[in-house]
Write a protein that binds this DNA or RNA. Structure first.
Lengths: 319, 319
DNA sequence: CCGTTTATATTCCGCTTGAGAATAAGGCGG
DNA sequence: CCGCCTTATTCTCAAGCGGAATATAAACGG
């Protein structure tokens, strides 16, 4: 097989192997309730639509679909993942899905459309550790995962499944890692503990003990978005895309806690924010906190240019 | 505009908006010379080919094309980015490119094919800081970037361009950040200091003072791959995909240095590797080091399961 | 005026990290 | 055989950072 053959084939098939490209969005906002995801009113599904000739770019196509389906304008957008749907392998049609994470403020919604927001913990109840480890995780998920591990044929697989579950969920005194949202969902899928894994893929999704289901693989895409966001807030100032123009430090902390799904040490969080110079005082204070008034801050947009988030962990030598 | 209309449109256009999907690979290996990228022999281009109906998945399609064009089997693969080619907007054809990063060992090459490897610093000479800051960066790039900044219409833009160049390249006593490979290339592109930005996109690329050019946007994709790899080696043990089964700690360090493009403090690097338990001794030693024999190590594959690379940087509370 | 509530500031300690020096174990030439 | 050169391996030490708890400030309501 020489490579000339490969190149010839490349050209010959150029016109026959077309695919349909779908754009799909995980749109996140934070309100009093907590972290929310934008769904289309028709059902438990993420906004999506095909990439069309009229779209100037992938992102503008996504913006158009989301705004058309929900009336919500998008701010920050970043690509998540592209995959070829395995469920839809027809003889002559292939579908590619390009998923995105978008951050927005809920009040940005325009007049048109009827955005419907849902707490993302409705879909992943085991992901919220702000009030301690969720009961259902220890009382339902854990025994069912152990049962699944025990069902394996050979001992090696049993041991492996147990270890994977323990790492993902923090069993056996392992630490909880909020970034592993996707691995956890995939593990539950593999163990057939989420509805999508068992039922007819075309059946209407319902709520179950292990969280609300969504159509097709939308819940998996949502898990990807949550995982990406949870790890990203640690090294990039993206939280501010979700905040109002001015805010108190506690409001900022609550937003981060809502996303991360766990509580944060207050003084240390303030120290972190201040020494990174992420915010500046507006000079005003907020009285509706109940106690002493809190200073209001705004995001220092300059940090987006100034710093490039120096990478860590490699003991490089200084010149 | 209600959403019903959006959904109707969705269905109606489902069959008319097909696109061609290209798979494109940044295949990396490390040899005595340094970090290498796999190119097709026909010219300065990355291996690529269309996603076809016959391919079981995007990744398997990529594997097939790379092996067909270069004879190189691929190990580790991860997705980089998906984009719609702006250069090729015909009336009726849209092309989507899905790019991948692949890691392999050079000796893994089979009999067929004729892989051609090139040091990636041939394409990005300003990225190699292992022997100090490259001359060409300070003597050629810097003055030309400053000139470009000075050419801006208004003072604000001039200042902004200068700052961006300083952040990306570490001018004015700012630290060098090896992870910014993509930003640096994009800046040079914007300043028209790389050949792809100026010449006819269909002209044959040549070498210039600012590194070898590649066809279309392949050099940009390569920059994306380098940036991803440089940041990934800091929190995931992917270097081992590029190493021989057994190696000395200095060989491992040299590989990381080749990728990162900068030197590493030896004792601290050893401490890092050991305390993370990434490797285990084979019991043998290597005599061909010139001085005292070095212990040989192998990668502890178990770490891939054990640890999930705990995220840092958020002052979470412990229960 | 005092207690309650929340915001903000300060302190302390242990661990990691950056940087350099010291020691070990081969080969080689005299 | 001995001293020297080269590279490998280990040790030390101080500065900085992160985790946790405590102390002070400013509003409100009785």
């Amino acid at each position: 097989m020489d490579q000339t053959k490969g190149l010839r084939k490349h050209r010959a098939n150029a016109t026959t192997n077309k695919v349909k490209a779908d754009l799909i969005a995980v749109v996140v906002a934070v309100n009093e309730i907590g972290p929310c995801v934008l769904t289309i009113a028709k059902g438990p599904a993420l906004p999506s639509g095909p990439f069309e000739l009229a779209h100037r770019s992938l992102q503008s196509g996504l913006r158009a679909w989301v705004e058309l389906q929900t009336g919500q304008p998008l701010g920050y957008i970043e690509q998540l993942y592209t995959f070829a749907d395995r469920d839809r392998i027809d003889a002559n049609e292939r579908v590619i899905s390009i998923s995105y994470l978008a951050l927005t403020r809920q009040e940005d919604a325009g007049a048109s459309g009827q955005p419907s927001w849902a707490s993302w913990y409705d879909y992943f109840p085991w992901e919220d550790h702000r009030s301690g480890t969720p009961r259902m995780m220890l009382e339902e998920l854990r025994p069912r995962l152990l049962e699944w591990a025990g069902n394996a044929d050979d001992g090696a697989t049993r041991f492996d499944r147990q270890r994977r579950a323990a790492v993902a969920f923090g069993f056996d005194d392992r630490p909880w890692n909020e970034d592993l949202t996707l691995q956890r969902y995939e593990l539950l899928y593999e163990a057939a503990l989420v509805e999508e894994a068992t039922g007819d893929p075309n059946a209407a999704p319902t709520a179950s003990a292990s969280g609300k289901a969504m159509v097709a693989d939308h819940r998996r895409i949502l898990a990807t978005g949550i995982a990406r966001l949870r790890s990203k807030i640690k090294y990039r100032p993206v939280v501010f895309e979700l905040m109002r123009p001015t805010f108190t430090l506690l409001q900022l902390q609550r937003a981060v806690e809502a996303l991360a799904g766990r509580l944060i040490n207050k003084p240390n969080f303030r120290r972190l924010v201040e020494q990174q110079e992420l915010v500046e005082e507006t000079g005003e204070t907020s009285l509706d906190t109940g106690g002493r008034p809190a200073k209001l801050y705004r995001f220092r947009h300059a940090v987006l240019d100034e710093r490039a988030a120096a990478g860590t962990k490699l003991p490089v030598m200084r010149p």
